[in-house]
Design a binder for these strands. Structure first.
Lengths: 120, 120
DNA sequence: ATGAACTATAAACTTAGGTTTATAGCAATA
DNA sequence: TATTGCTATAAACCTAAGTTTATAGTTCAT
């Protein structure tokens, strides 16, 4: 019977963020119910779920996109969801390409190869 | 003798963004001067410079961080700049790790391996 | 030489992703 | 039983990274 403070400690997400994500439909009902006093009671699986959410939000998904994917009420067909996921994988690959370029650029600065640094 | 509209077209950055970056000290003086009517006149190298800036801003650097790096007036010693660049390379490596995890996660969704999708 | 197109600045506005504050109802313990 | 601590909601606030608007001067084509 986890309450919000427990989830916060286990995931590293502030309590305010947990409530905020819920308002944004990022926490499916299966993970959270209310007790007699209207306190949130979380299932154990919320921790793993939130770790996945953190990873996905950290670079590629916006809250709104992710909520479309996880919220059944928003009636996205599984075909649409599949397309969305495939699209996201492509976007991740683009970011990976960009990151390799940027990393190389920064390494060039370190060894004095970049004309960026010498000019500035 | 490039004016702001030329630079905008060559880089894909809106004119408003070019002016905004300049206000944020992201465009060293060597790349931009003013003509008799106070119009901005850019050097040819600005295009390559802005492409680098775009790559760096797109994922890892904030405008403020990058302006610290490129602006000589902000008197960061080259030792400090070196540390900052090394730090950024580490951050990029972390993002790369995170991205590989997220990508794998999304691929698992596609083949039905993720319990994320089935629950939601 | 005039209207359309381009440039300038300052200031207001926008959006995402939260965080903080104000107010109030439960809970745990000395 | 009282005070400290946890929970709740709604609404205001915040920051980054731009974008839009208002106003005004410049230039180019006809």
């Amino acid at each position: 019977m986890m309450k919000i403070n427990d989830v916060s400690k286990l995931t590293g997400l502030p309590i305010s963020t947990l409530r905020f994500y819920e308002r944004k439909n990022l926490i499916p009902d299966v993970f959270v119910q209310r007790d007699a006093n209207n306190y949130r009671i979380y299932s154990e699986e919320i921790v793993e779920y939130l770790n996945d959410v953190k990873a996905l939000l950290s670079v590629e998904f916006s809250i709104e996109e992710l909520s479309l994917l996880v919220n059944p009420q928003l009636h996205l067909s599984s075909e649409e969801k599949k397309k969305m996921v495939e699209q996201k994988i492509k976007e991740i690959e683009d970011i990976q390409k960009q990151l390799r370029k940027s990393k190389k650029f920064l390494e060039d600065i370190l060894v004095g190869k970049a004309n960026f640094q010498t000019k500035c």
